[in-house]
């Protein structure tokens, strides 16, 4: 059954998402002169978990939802929880206005319901295709190269203070 999963699996995946978000965040403070990571960077890593975790519903709430889902026997798309816009927006890091949430919710639900038609297709023994079955995977040697137009690259940075890309403080008031 496609929709059967445990809170534990969900937590693992959420951690993966967090790791990705952290990787994205870690880029916020780039060392552009080839130095090794400093404590600044490590600090950013550990503290940001706290910031990001606060946007995730508490574990018991997730467990409740997982139980509801695991009890469901229907394989129809409706047994998958419909999109929770505020939560998705937090994960995708897009600050939506209440008006946008109101406007987007029916549109996104409509499309997601329409996606659901694939639940009824018999796909048991079919291998998933990552992309077109053409050529590719011509990986080049993993050797660092100097980018020619470094000046232009840096001039695109909205807020720069040699040798750092500057961002506002990473911590919100509560976690301070």
């Amino acid at each position: 059954m496609e929709n059967y999963f445990f809170a534990e699996e969900r937590r693992e995946a959420e951690e993966k998402t967090m790791a990705m978000a952290m990787a994205m965040t870690s880029r916020a403070l780039l060392l552009l002169k080839g130095a090794t990571p400093t404590n600044h960077r490590r600090l950013l890593f550990t503290r940001d978990i706290a910031t990001f975790s606060s946007s995730i519903p508490p574990l018991h709430a997730r467990l409740d939802r997982a139980i509801v889902r695991s009890c469901s026997t229907s394989n129809s798309p409706s047994s998958l929880e419909p999109p929770d816009l505020p939560r998705l927006a937090a994960t995708a890091r897009i600050s939506l206005t209440p008006q946008e949430i109101e406007e987007f919710t029916p549109k996104i639900r409509q499309v997601v319901d329409w996606f659901g038609q694939l639940q009824d297709v018999e796909l048991q023994s079919v291998e998933p295709a990552l992309r077109a079955d053409t050529d590719g995977d011509q990986l080049r040697e993993d050797v660092p190269e100097t980018f020619d137009n470094r000046e232009a690259l840096i001039s695109s940075v909205p807020s720069y203070e040699e040798p750092f890309i500057k961002v506002p403080k990473v911590l919100n008031k509560e976690s301070e």
Binding site: R11, E12, K16, A92, V111, V112
Partner: peptide
Amino acid sequence: LMGTYALSA
């Protein structure tokens, strides 16, 4: 947002 949903755990 739809993609974030579809890729959710």
